[in-house]
């Protein structure tokens, strides 16, 4: 073959060099992070200018130095947040109430329990909706309505009601987390269970398959890609639910409790560090779901 000798097709012309560099994954990500950091650093002096401990005038370098060394800045510098994150995770004993690993673990346990409950509830509701026609009309409006109510308003009610029947601690927080995260699972799985086309369903009919067999051998496996798409949304929402669940309980532990106590005492660094910890935790959870998805779809004969 003489493919090397062929002139390059016009459509195959490469884009310009800057465009190529920017479109490469790691470079694009780094560029965005850099832009955020530059913007963040630029905001530090103006954001903190109103504080009494800031000098009224001086050179930009002096003002910057003063802003960076503030104990309770309105907006802390990114490196200060990272340092706080490092101090409260690596340099603190994990069992200490000052450790973000400890607080992260508390939140993670209610997140995972809430996620498991939410996924189970979401799937059960979806099964009900696709198998009983009347349920679609009677249940779906309530499911949608449940998500329009602000969770912050519902959370204290759940805590009080569950507390009155003796449920405190992990379970109420997990229930709040479940309340938020079942929704995407229900919607996704209704779509997944109804995804088989009429030919695949007719095939089951020619075998005179029962409803249960059609579900187990067709609807369920066909819904797996939809399940994972829902799980990615659900897992991050369930973390939000767990954090929100910690706010009205007056919980002593958890990332939410950390946020709350930080804001009581004006410990902005503590708030920011807890926020970052929550963000990191959320990305790890989504990553875990993504990995589980890759493995499962591969086992189900997906194209590599």
């Amino acid at each position: 073959m003489t493919t090397e000798a062929l002139p390059a097709r016009p459509s195959a012309r490469l884009p310009s060099l800057p465009a190529r560099i920017l479109s490469s994954g790691p470079v694009a990500i780094a560029a965005v992070v850099l832009a955020i950091l530059v913007g963040w650093y630029a905001m530090i002096v103006p954001m903190n200018a109103g504080l009494p401990s800031m000098p009224k005038e001086g050179s930009y370098a002096e003002l910057t130095r003063a802003a960076w060394s503030l104990e309770r800045p309105v907006l802390p510098a990114p490196h200060a947040v990272v340092a706080e994150l490092w101090r409260s995770t690596v340099e603190t004993r994990m069992t200490s109430p000052r450790s973000l690993v400890f607080h992260g673990w508390v939140t993670l346990s209610s997140t995972l329990l809430g996620f498991a409950l939410g996924v189970a509830l979401g799937i059960v509701l979806a099964i009900g909706i696709v198998s009983v026609k009347a349920l679609e009309k009677s249940l779906l409006p309530w499911i949608i309505a449940s998500q329009t109510i602000p969770i912050l308003a519902v959370a204290p009610i759940i805590i009080v009601v569950l507390g009155s029947i003796g449920l405190t601690g992990l379970v109420p927080k997990a229930i709040i987390s479940m309340y938020l995260c079942f929704f995407p699972v229900t919607i996704g799985m209704v779509k997944g269970f109804t995804s088989p086309d009429s030919m695949q369903l007719d095939l089951m009919r020619t075998y005179s398959a029962s409803g249960l067999q059609t579900f187990a051998k067709l609807r369920w496996p066909a819904s797996v890609p939809f399940l994972f798409a829902s799980l990615k949304v659900a897992v991050s929402i369930s973390l939000v639910g767990a954090i929100v669940g910690e706010l009205p309980t007056g919980a002593q532990a958890g990332l939410g409790a950390r946020l709350l106590s930080g804001s009581y005492y004006g410990q902005t660094l503590q708030i920011w560090a807890a926020l970052f910890a929550a963000a990191i935790l959320a990305s790890l959870l989504v990553l875990a779901v993504t990995l589980a998805e890759k493995v499962t779809l591969r086992l189900m004969g997906g194209r590599p």
Binding site: M199, Q200, D202, L203, M204, T206, Y207, S208, A209, Q213, K217, L218, P221, A222, V224, M300, G301, G302
Partner: peptide, 26 residues
Amino acid sequence: YGYVFQAPALYPWRTVERNVMLPLEI
């Protein structure tokens, strides 16, 4: 009767062997 449709309508998550075994399982 066995019915062959216009399209193969194989289940993509099953191997060839397990597709053929589908009616037998049912």
